[in-house]
Design a protein around this nucleic acid. Structure first.
Lengths: 228, 228
DNA sequence: TCAAAAGTGTTCTTCGTACACCCATGA
DNA sequence: TCATGGGTGTACGAAGAACACTTTTGA
């Protein structure tokens, strides 16, 4: 190269959460510094000189939103010149999944505010962050069909209908209840507990399920075919 | 961050080529500078300040090996501290596919030498480049099952058996000739030409096929299910 | 007793898989 | 005429898709 390289490296994270009430949601922060001050954006920031990319994501998430996540996967690296109006910044993006407990968030030091937004109601975002969310959603949609990642989004014990609704929310289409259950049960990573759902409202309470982690991680490695 | 960021950004490319004689092969260069001087490595190098990542890949490939490619896709970004023994370097890796014509390569200015290596006979490589090749091969294996990328690796017109052999080489397993053909034909992106294969050796010459680019690109977008 | 949600089984169709014989060509 | 590789069809089984009635609970 003729001149010295002057490029910054950042990480950004698309964190998905799910509850049947809120639907599939994404964690955003409101920026309190320029550029795009007061715009909503993905949590993220520059990578430290001796920090791995994953560590940088976890650190930024902690600083900006107070949460930590147990499922994190690299998505894509965005590097077009001009995507940051001031410097050349390459963003290595990740997507993460959190359980409903983590819906409790606290705006922390680096961000004026942090909040969850339903995937269908994302506000205008800073930089090219809207296209990053689209890419992450697309990845999640395809991933959920061949790996049982959906369970990273549910509580330890859940009624079967929660899993159905999650799949319908992620895939954004209807699924036949009976065929879905048959298919999922056949994989064998679900265990039926003796407990029953505690209702809010009418209807027959469903049995609660949890998952067999050994089988689950094995299938996560092997890949499943989950063409619902 | 407390200190100024000091991280370099590089791109590296895993370029796959295929002929039935050579099998599935990867393009490598022999480094003529330290670190890892005289080791084989993936073509690649630092990204220019005003250059897109894809442009940087194409430029490095041109400089180091003399080839240009028409299929290029981002693979993964490797950023662990210490993967380059001297500086912190983050490598954004790509994989590319070239047609057999491009097997003609010329070692160019930046590299002492460039050569194709069969995927099963890769020499010891500089940096973490062997794991990058493994990741690229894995990606190609899965990609070829749901998108018709295989055709980027064949000539314009080819006998059907070339496609079979390509799939067998990429997936590293046997495929039933008859079932494979039935399935591929059903997708409708293949056109049978009036021409016949010119033989080297005995055997009945096969009809040559080409592909219908409209159908092909449509399926490439939609994705296919190609579980052979 | 009604409304809401959960539990379950059968039939039909589609797709995948296994498999073997004949044909065209060069040596 | 033999060896090599190309061309094709059928039968079986597995898996997916469509689909409706009964049960449990709260109001």
């Amino acid at each position: 190269m003729p001149t010295t390289q002057d490029i910054k490296v950042a990480v950004d994270a698309v964190v998905f959460g799910y509850t049947s009430k809120e639907g599939l949601s994404v964690l955003l922060i409101k920026r309190n510094i320029d550029p795009f001050k007061n715009n909503w954006a993905l949590p993220g920031g520059l990578v430290g000189n001796n920090e791995s990319l994953e560590d940088a994501v976890q650190r930024e998430l902690k600083e900006e939103t107070g949460i930590s996540i147990n499922y994190l996967e690299q998505l894509y690296s965005f590097g077009k010149p001009g995507r940051d109006p001031r410097n050349r910044v390459i963003s290595i993006t990740y997507y993460g999944l959190v359980k409903p407990e983590a819906f409790e968030i606290h705006a922390a030091t680096d961000a004026a505010e942090a909040a969850w937004f339903n995937i269908k109601k994302i506000p205008p975002l800073a930089f090219d962050h809207d296209s990053i969310i689209i890419a992450a959603h697309k990845r999640l949609k395809s991933k959920i069909l061949y790996q049982p990642v959906g369970f990273e989004l549910l509580e330890e014990k859940f009624p079967f209908s929660e899993l159905e609704k999650l799949y319908m929310a992620v895939l954004d289409r209807d699924i036949d209840r009976r065929n879905f259950k048959k298919k999922v049960i056949k994989f064998g990573f679900l265990e039926e507990t003796a407990e029953k759902q505690v209702l809010e409202g009418a209807g027959r309470p469903g049995n609660l399920f949890s998952f067999n982690k050994d089988k689950y991680f094995q299938l996560q490695k092997e890949g499943i075919n989950f063409e619902i």
